[in-house]
Measured scan of single mutants.
Amino acid sequence: TETRTFTDEREARRFEQEARDNGKDVQVRESNGKFEVRVK
């Protein structure tokens, strides 16, 4: 599991989409204006 934290939602979404395109299981959590993207 890899976790990346972004402050920019667009960057978080781009990373999320890229991971999904690669067939990964992705979860995005938002807290305090930060976006935590977990990739399995």
Rank of each mutant, 00 (worst) to 15 (best):
A19Q: 14
E9Y: 09
R38S: 14
G33R: 02
V37H: 01
V28M: 10
K40D: 11
Q27L: 12
R4F: 15
E2S: 08
G33N: 05
R14D: 08
V39S: 04
E16A: 15
D25V: 11
A19L: 11
R38L: 15
E11M: 06
K34L: 14
E36F: 11
D8T: 10
A19T: 04
K34D: 05
D21T: 09
R20G: 03
F6A: 02
N32W: 04
E9D: 03
G23N: 06
T5C: 12
F35N: 00
N32D: 11
R20V: 07
D8V: 04
T7E: 12
R4K: 10
Q17Y: 06
N32M: 09
T1S: 11
E9S: 05
Q27T: 14
E36V: 13
F15T: 02
D8W: 01
R29D: 07
T3I: 14
G33K: 03
T3G: 04
Q27A: 10
V37L: 03
N32L: 06
E11F: 03
R14P: 01
F35E: 01
K34E: 10
V39W: 06
T5L: 13
V37F: 00
K40S: 15
G23H: 06
D21R: 14
V39H: 02
D21Y: 09
F35Y: 11
R29V: 15
Q27I: 13
E9A: 07
F15V: 04
V37R: 00
R10K: 13
G33Q: 03
K34I: 15
R20A: 04
R4N: 05
E36Y: 14
F6K: 00
N32Y: 07
R20W: 05
F6Y: 06
N32I: 03
G33D: 04
R20E: 03
R14V: 10
K34Q: 12
T7G: 07
R20Y: 05
K34A: 09
R4Y: 15
D21Q: 12
F35T: 03
E2Q: 09
D8R: 02
E11T: 06
D25I: 13
Q17E: 07
R38I: 15
Q27R: 08
V39R: 02
D21F: 09
K34V: 15
R38K: 11
T1Y: 15
R13T: 05
V26G: 01
R29W: 14
E9M: 07
V26E: 00
D8L: 04
A12E: 00
V37Y: 00
E2N: 08
E30A: 09
R4S: 06
N32T: 03
A19R: 04
R4A: 06
K24I: 08
E36T: 09
Q27W: 14
T5G: 03
V26L: 02
R38V: 15
D25Y: 11
G33T: 00
T7I: 10
R20Q: 05
K34C: 12
E11Q: 07
R20K: 09
D21K: 13
E30H: 10
R29A: 10
Q17R: 11
V28N: 02
A12W: 03
E2A: 07
T3M: 11
S31Q: 11
T3V: 15
G33L: 02
V37M: 01
R4Q: 08
F15E: 02
G33H: 04
Q17D: 06
T7Q: 08
K40Y: 14
T3C: 15
R29Q: 11
T5W: 15
D8M: 02
Q27S: 13
T1H: 11
T5I: 14
K40F: 15
R13L: 09
V28R: 03
F35G: 01
R14H: 08
G23K: 05
E18M: 10
F15P: 01
T1Q: 10
V39G: 02
V37A: 02
E18Q: 11
S31W: 14
V26N: 00
T7W: 12
R10D: 12
R4E: 04
F15K: 02
E30S: 08
G23Q: 05
R4V: 11
R10F: 12
R10M: 12
S31D: 10
V28S: 04
E11G: 03
T3K: 06
G23M: 04
E16L: 07
N32V: 04
D8N: 10
